[in-house]
Structures are given as structure tokens and as C-alpha cells.
């Protein structure tokens, strides 16, 4: 088998593979940089909680209108935003911290969603919603993914400085600007937006993987913020591409394979990462002079 057959032919021959590749790349451009901030803000599990919060909204859209992009996106977006904004407001106005208020909100959302699904009494197959359909992306979904990636990159650029400040020293930002609360909530809105986009392609659960695994890998590779964000995107794209190739040749489901490749990259970074990986910790070399 030639290299061309291995690495290029699947995309050259099949339109659904090309679409899957474009969709994965769009997800990988915007999601992982958000993941970097989630990790630095010690909110790595927030992505997971938000994915659970989105699920009932998406399922509700699915029940109302079947498997169509519009209602499921709107449902997921609405559920995610209510939880994100609600928990942000609670964290800023009451004694509860963000993790506690988020946990409370997403559990309510999840329970509500399950109740609504059971009310309808239909035995729907939620597997599709849960694990996505990266090989069945239509034009509308691709445009949605591309739009979300563009909006996210622009918004993240606009939020970058206050978001960094809010992460390092929230008290200082509060003393020089009133933007702290807005920044925090805008950031969560971006996370929701990307998870909703991700669940079209990878499903709600795996969408979080695309956001967090490349980001965690990038954190192990460099201490430089700019490089970290760039590396996270590149690793995400690499995982998207390699995952599709492997799934094509091995005849395995593509969504989980993309995340498994991202997981493999993470394991490699964990061992060899120059910024705090295992080898670096175990064999740091002899101490320096000063």
C-alpha cells in the first residue's frame, strides 16, 4: 500500500471523509484554546459538566423536531447558556463558589432532561445524540461549525487580556475594571457554543475530549501561553486527521477514534512533555550553579 493510499486517498475518493475532515479541523481550531483556559483556571471538569447540561436541551430539540440541526442546536445552546450564566451569577452573588453552583445547575438540567424524555414515552435512540455522526455532516452543519470556530477565535482574541488577568489575579482586575464578571460569563458562553458545535460532529460526551485532551497535552509541552494555545490547536487538528484515517482503514467508529488519538497524544505528552512531563520530573539532570 502506498503512502498516497494510506493518507490521502480516503479524502480524495470520498466526499463524506472530506466533510468529516473539514468539520474536525474547524472543531480543533477553536475548542482546544478554550480548553487551555479551562485547565489554567482549574475548570477542567467544567467542560464535562457543561456537556451534561447541554444534553437535555439537545434531546428536547430532537424530540420536538427529530434529528435536525436547528432545533437540537438551539435546544442545546439554550440549556447550556442557562446553566453557564445561572451558575456564573450564583457564584458572583452568593457564598457558593463556581464549581458548586455549576454542579447544582447541571444536575438539575440533566434530571429535567431525562424527565422530559420519559414524559414523551418514546423509546428514542439517544446513542446518536450522545456519540455524534462525524461521517454524516451536511452543509448546514459544516457552516455552523465554521461559524462557531470563527466567532470563538475573534471573541477569544477580544477577551484574551482580561481573561488572563481574571485567571491570575481576579482581585486586581476587579480593582481596575468592572469587566471581570462579563469576561467570566462570556468565556463560559464560548465553551457552550463549542460544545454544542462539537456534539453535532462527535456527540456531547466526546466533544469535551476534543476540547480538553489537546489542551492538557499542550500544557505539558510548553510554559509559554502563546505557544500553548497554538500547540493545542495543532494537536487537535492532528488528532482529527489521524483519527479519521485510522477509523477509515480499521473500519472503526470515527468519533471515538479521534478522541483516542488525542488521548494517545496526551499519554505521549505526559511521558515526554518538556514542561513538567514524567521523564522531566524523574530525570531532571544535575542541579545548576545558580
Amino acid at each position: 500500500m502506498q503512502l498516497h493510499d494510506l493518507f490521502i486517498a480516503p479524502f480524495a475518493e470520498f466526499a463524506f471523509m472530506r466533510r468529516a475532515l473539514v468539520g474536525s479541523l474547524a472543531l480543533a481550531i477553536a475548542g482546544p484554546p478554550l480548553g487551555v483556559f479551562l485547565i489554567l483556571r482549574r475548570m477542567a471538569l467544567t467542560g464535562d459538566a457543561m456537556a451534561h447540561a447541554i444534553l437535555p436541551g439537545a434531546a428536547l430539540g430532537y424530540l420536538a423536531a427529530g434529528l435536525s440541526l436547528g432545533p437540537m442546536t438551539i435546544g442545546g445552546l439554550a440549556a447550556g447558556l442557562i446553566v453557564a450564566v445561572g451558575s456564573g451569577v450564583v457564584a458572583r452573588t452568593t457564598i457558593l463558589r463556581e464549581d458548586a453552583s455549576l454542579a447544582a445547575f447541571y444536575l438539575i438540567s440533566l434530571a429535567l432532561g431525562v424527565t422530559i424524555v420519559s414524559l414523551r414515552g418514546s423509546n428514542i435512540d439517544l446513542l446518536h445524540v450522545l456519540f455524534g455522526s462525524v461521517l454524516a455532516l451536511d452543509d448546514a452543519t459544516l457552516i455552523l461549525l465554521a461559524a462557531i470556530a470563527s466567532v470563538t477565535l475573534i471573541a477569544l482574541a477580544a477577551l484574551y487580556r482580561p481573561l488572563v488577568l481574571e485567571t491570575i489575579d481576579a482581585g486586581f482586575l476587579a480593582s481596575v475594571s468592572r469587566s471581570g464578571g462579563v469576561v467570566q460569563i462570556m468565556f463560559l458562553v464560548l465553551v457552550v457554543l463549542n460544545l454544542v458545535g462539537g456534539f453535532q460532529a462527535l456527540g456531547t460526551l466526546l466533544a469535551v475530549g476534543m476540547m480538553m485532551l489537546p489542551a492538557a497535552s499542550a500544557r505539558l509541552i510548553t510554559d509559554d501561553m502563546t505557544l500553548m494555545i497554538a500547540a493545542a490547536s495543532v494537536l487537535g487538528m492532528l488528532a482529527g486527521y489521524a483519527g479519521l484515517i485510522v477509523s477509515f482503514h480499521a473500519g472503526l467508529p470515527s468519533g471515538p477514534l479521534i478522541i483516542l488519538v488525542a488521548g494517545l497524544i496526551y499519554l505521549l505528552a505526559l511521558i515526554f512533555g518538556p514542561a513538567g512531563g514524567l521523564l522531566r520530573r524523574l530525570k531532571p539532570g544535575r542541579h545548576l550553579e545558580a
Binding site: A158, Y160, L165, T167, D169, F172, V176
Partner: peptide, 27 residues
Amino acid sequence: AADIDKTFPINVFDVVAMGLWKRCGPF
């Protein structure tokens, strides 16, 4: 005891530069 996240990958120069927020703002 300023509540600074010391694990954040940022250097001394950039933290001191934060003091310019009043003039620079976000952009």
C-alpha cells in the same frame, strides 16, 4: 496576601505590565 495564581505560566515582566491597564485596557 494577594490571591495570585502562581501556577499560571506568566513572567514577572508581564505581571508588572498589568499595572498599565488603566491606560492600555484590553487592547
